[in-house]
């Protein structure tokens, strides 16, 4: 297979991981805690879109938008009902709470929709042949959606008052509050945004493959790895981390490690694909714990 196809596959994987790690890293930037429940918003969003698509017969893009809004609201509700009360708790408590919340969300989806994998009623995607690569319309949509979200976030953070408030709160919450910024409202809007992005990632992953209650938990390591790799708390770092990790995952299985010996041929067994993300995570934590763009330190 062409290297170009490998790069394209990595880009698609990076788009999905990037959308998820964006919300995770934004929230860490504000609250300095690793939200293990974050990936479950992808599952909730994906299944909500399935519900609106199947039961209300909404086209998938409209169903996805509504699912994003509802999942964003769920994120907001989770903050107001749970994490708002733990604002000054130790990070380990927040982490454990988020872990429990993640299980509750995942099992809630399993209870409502069942454990069997499900599909959006989409026609078979016939790939376009673009030189050495094959690209389906859906994959183009995934790349476009991820790019649009990244651009939107960039504009939000750099050109709007809300974005400035987010950055100010992330840098120094007490000072931001003293300057009249409603930090709780900022935190709420980041919960909404992160959960909505995660919902979109869930819909895109579900559309390209299939929906499964474990689809969020299945990517938890790559998502955290992408956020850490880029520098936790750094939105652009999360996107860069997702890209590098996706490349490592796809290329790792194609490198002939046996070539180090004369005439040798040995490829990493595919069963170890998940280990690539772990290996990258360990290397980052050992060699550059602050990540590529320099992560935010715990307060």
């Amino acid at each position: 297979m062409a290297v170009e196809q490998l790069l394209l596959n990595s880009l698609i994987r990076a788009a999905e991981l990037g959308l998820l790690s964006l919300g995770l890293t934004l929230l860490y930037g504000l609250l300095r805690f690793a939200n293990f429940a974050h990936v479950e918003f992808a599952v909730v969003g994906a299944y909500l879109a399935l519900f609106f698509n199947r039961s209300w017969h909404w086209p998938l893009p409209a169903a996805a938008l509504l699912a994003m809004g509802l999942t964003g609201s769920l994120g907001l509700a989770v903050d107001r009902l749970v994490f708002c009360r733990l604002r000054h708790a130790a990070p380990v408590m927040l982490m454990i709470t988020s872990f429990g919340l993640g299980i509750a969300l995942r099992e809630g989806v399993r209870t409502l929709w069942g454990p069997a994998p499900q599909l959006y009623p989409l026609p078979l995607q016939r790939p376009w042949l673009l030189g050495p690569v094959r690209l389906t319309p859906l994959q183009l949509g995934i790349l476009g959606a991820a790019l649009a979200c990244a651009l939107l976030l960039h504009l939000l953070l750099t050109t709007t008052r809300a974005g400035m408030a987010m950055r100010a709160t992330a840098d120094h919450p007490e000072l931001a509050q003293a300057c009249g910024i409603a930090t709780e409202r900022v935190i709420g809007s980041v919960w909404f945004l992160g959960a909505a992005f995660a919902a979109l990632a869930g819909v895109l992953m579900g559309a390209e493959t299939q929906l499964h209650p474990n689809m969020g938990f299945a990517v938890i390591i790559p998502v955290f790895c992408a956020a850490l790799l880029g520098g936790i708390g750094r939105p652009y770092g999360a996107l860069l981390g997702a890209l590098l990790l996706a490349l490592a995952e796809n290329a790792g299985l194609r490198v002939n490690f046996g070539a180090l010996l004369p005439g040798g041929s040995w490829y990493l067994p595919t069963g170890y694909k998940d280990a690539i993300a772990f290996a990258v995570l360990i290397l980052v934590l050992l060699l550059r714990p602050q990540g590529l763009l320099g992560g935010k330190r715990p307060r």
Binding site: Q5, N9, P117, M205, A218, E249, N250, R254
Partner: peptide
């Protein structure tokens, strides 16, 4: 090529590419 894939994964593109080495 011998590919052993893990169950319930969301993406098998890397495994498929490895199968065609």
């Amino acid at each position: 090529a011998k590919v052993r894939y893990e169950l319930e994964k969301p993406d098998y593109r890397a495994e498929l590419q490895a199968a065609f080495q």
